[in-house]
Computed example of a mutant assay.
Amino acid sequence: MNTLKNCLRYVLLALPLLFFACKDKDPGPDTDDVVYVGSVDKKLYALDAATGSKKWEFLTGGTVYNDAAFSNGVVYVGSYDTKLYALDATTGTKKWEFTTGGQIYSSPAVSNGVVYVGSYDTKLYALDAATGTGKWVFLAGGRIRSSPVVSNGIVYIGSDDFKVYALDAATGTKKWEFLTGAPIDASPIISNGIVYVGSIDKKLYAIDATIGTKKWEFLTGGNIYGTAAVSNGVVYVGSFDGKCYALDATTGAKKWDYTSSPSVSGYGVSVANGIVYFAGNTGGKQYALDAATGTKKWELATVGSTYYSTVSNGVFYAGSSDGKLYVTDAVTGTGKWTFSGGAFTGKPCVVTKQGKVVRGNPGD
């Protein structure tokens, strides 16, 4: 009997230890883990987000102008060698490649096990993300430099034929098309049932995402090559007139504009935590502006052209044609590290330790 009592006592004493041992470990705050960025030196780089040290690199057969995409442990990237590559995100080992009929400037998008990418051969391709097997192809009327965006089972894409297309994501069937006044280099973004896209006709368009009718348009003073960003009911866009514009997302009414100094060709924008990040392109600067007022908070000077940026977990990532990727504190602009490779023109793709993917704006 004493032996039984002693056994029960040890079991009861051990229960708290078993309880705490079985509890899930608190993952703590999410932090950035890996940055994937392509370069004109034909490579895709995987970098440690904390230090900038290189984890691996993958050499394609042509210039990599576009952004990488990440899904389920695989990184997808297109190249001017006409191919889309699927790489193991941890090792950089190639899983498959798919050859299109033209150079790839468009960035891939992945949704529901399908990867979508445009090509200079005027086609948008839908491929099985696991195998690279083709599912469908849509033929546009011009080169595709714009990048696809998938929302609510619809793929949106712009083309050099002046048009924005809305396609059924499963079949490629066209739902509608919208004609602008010039080729479309910028990529569409979707917010609250509205498609926002810039054109080389100097205008930003707001289009009903379901039926393709125009809600409003806004004329800037220069061509729009960069993708816009939307936050808190405001759409932000850069123009080659050297300005960043803040517009009411519902009406298109201008709230403010910021002119770079000296005035340069404006390009892509990102927005996070009340700050708009505006690429000055030919002036080699990235500007951080107050999202509500347009007041400059800080600027980053490079010695090359800048195009896009990504903001994640309070960290700002931006490439330049000077061959460097710059990483700073997103609030203060204080430098954290730089990485030297070839010229970087796309948005860095950041994957956090908890698996969140950020390419441009948080939530993208």
Score class of each variant (00 low, 15 high):
V34M: 10
V11C: 11
I207C: 00
G252Q: 04
K135N: 07
A288M: 10
S199P: 09
F20K: 13
T295H: 07
L8A: 10
I144E: 06
G113N: 03
G284S: 04
L167I: 12
S151V: 12
D121G: 04
Y120C: 10
L18E: 01
P262V: 10
K95V: 02
T91L: 07
R143I: 12
V137E: 15
D41C: 09
F138W: 11
T306F: 02
G346L: 05
T90A: 14
G323N: 04
F178Q: 00
R145M: 11
V331K: 13
Q103F: 05
Y80Q: 14
N281M: 08
T328V: 14
P188Y: 09
A140C: 14
I184L: 15
K42R: 13
F98Y: 15
K55L: 14
T338S: 07
S146V: 12
S79D: 05
D33A: 11
N192W: 05
G284K: 07
A14S: 13
C22V: 09
S107D: 13
S151G: 04
V197D: 01
L127K: 02
G158S: 02
K214P: 03
T352A: 07
T171S: 14
A292S: 15
K296C: 06
S305Y: 08
D322R: 00
D364W: 11
S107Q: 12
W136V: 06
T220L: 09
S260G: 14
A301K: 12
F70T: 05
P262S: 07
Q103T: 07
N361L: 07
F58S: 13
T302A: 09
V276Q: 00
L47V: 06
Y125G: 05
I224T: 05
V235N: 01
I157G: 00
K94P: 03
G38C: 04
L247Y: 00
L17G: 08
V276K: 01
D201G: 04
T213D: 00
A292N: 13
I190H: 10
I189E: 03
I154Y: 00
G266P: 09
